[in-house]
Design a protein around this nucleic acid. Structure first.
Lengths: 112, 112
DNA sequence: GTAATCGTCAACTGAATGGTTGAATATGCC
DNA sequence: GGCATATTCAACCATTCAGTTGACGATTAC
């Protein structure tokens, strides 16, 4: 249990990995396509994806030579529950969330 | 922004630090008292508290020779909002949360 | 004043992390 | 078969992290 939270929070602590999760929020993607917007090497992104998969935040399925990455939002439940226990926040404003995500993506990913 | 989430999630990824936050949920505490249940050194706990303070998750105020540590749950808001965007979870069951916290504390802190 | 208490600092260690490059392994295409 | 594409592996490097121990600066108590 504590073990799982360790790994989930550690996975979320990296901006590249959070950016990847945001990208996968829109659609499943192949590893190469996930890596495309980043300046770091493909191997580095592959490692990040492994970290996310170990945390249960994404799943990966190989079809042919392409490995598809899929968001697994349920893995965030334990972490969300843990955090909500420390303060009751009003319901999330999803519009604000989307604007926030967008600005975080812009900070993390280089413009083409 | 992304910077803040980095630091908050990294702070939460350590079980000792999460245990400290749980302890502070009940009451403000002095550094020495925070350290008491742990087997690690006082200096190590002092460092953990600095990490939590840097993340804004606690505040520290020195009165006399005692430094008091206080939970600052609002710092979790940004992180909670970020995570909730990935899935709409039902309202938190606080009883379940308390049981969970207790079991996590028992896993992290040595019985006297 | 002197001694005990509270907490941090400094220097060190071992392990983990994020990154690189180049080779290796599959798989698909012609 | 032969070549291109997709992804990971292996080895390496620099940095960060959690922990230790011992010394040190404050503050309180006697």
């Amino acid at each position: 249990m504590a073990h799982t939270l360790d790994i989930i929070f550690a996975a979320l602590s990296d901006p590249t990995r959070r950016a990847i999760l945001s990208m996968l929020l829109e659609d499943d993607m192949a590893v190469t396509d996930v890596a495309a917007p980043f300046t770091t090497s493909l191997a580095a992104i592959s490692k990040h994806l492994q970290v996310l998969a170990d945390a249960g935040l994404i799943s990966q399925e190989k079809r042919g030579r392409v490995k598809w990455c899929k968001l697994e939002p349920d893995a965030l439940r334990a972490a969300t529950v843990w955090m909500q226990g420390f303060g009751q926040f009003e319901p999330v404003n999803l519009d604000a969330f989307e604007r926030f995500l967008e600005s975080e993506l812009n900070d993390t990913i280089q413009a083409p």
